[in-house]
Design a protein around this nucleic acid. Sequence first.
DNA 1: TGTTACATTACGCATTATTGCAATAATCAT
DNA 2: ATGATTATTGCAATAATGCGTAATGTAACA
Lengths: 94, 94
Amino acid sequence: MRETSSLTLVGKALSHPLRERMLWMLGEGERCGCEFAPELGVDPSIVSRYLGILERAGLLTSRREGVRVMWQLADPQLLDVLEQLGELTKEKVA
Amino acid sequence: MRETSSLTLVGKALSHPLRERMLWMLGEGERCGCEFAPELGVDPSIVSRYLGILERAGLLTSRREGVRVMWQLADPQLLDVLEQLGELTKEKVA
DNA sequence: TGTTACATTACGCATTATTGCAATAATCAT
DNA sequence: ATGATTATTGCAATAATGCGTAATGTAACA
């Protein structure tokens, strides 16, 4: 591993099925971090780590609201772009 | 790691700065695999592995031409989408 | 202060990825 | 068949990630 460009960071963040799923969950709107663990069936510590990875990649932003941290997509267009990326890389099977 | 959806695969493929660079090199047009090693300063075996990773992620396609293998982007729009993704994840610094 | 709820971080270990080198494969020309 | 060029794969060492558990933070409130 040499350096880490921004797209590389985004790639790393997307490199995990649960993190990808978390992005889609946020497509429906802002969420409290505490909602992910039960829905994904993982420990809250993992959720916190994943959210941090997605945030540092520039995919998410957050704001604190009392004891909770609310998360949202960094940009509303984000899922559209990711969907396009999915389409363009889908094999055109015969 | 649980399962591997298509976007997850794409993410993994993008998760390396040299692989990302190879994509941009291909934005200028089709290339022989043999051109990458000297330009990137790595062993040809690494180039071969990286190209395979990018191909399996659906980002590239290839065709053999004699002793060479020629590589191209799976879709001409790909770099546009990646560029958009880069823009959307760029921090809006104050 | 003590308690409760949510969030984050630290540590250790298992898993996976990366990479250099050597060996093997594929194609073509002589 | 031999040799030249490009490509791929196997193996072993090293590096990076993932994850479970436990510990620590942070905010609200009685």
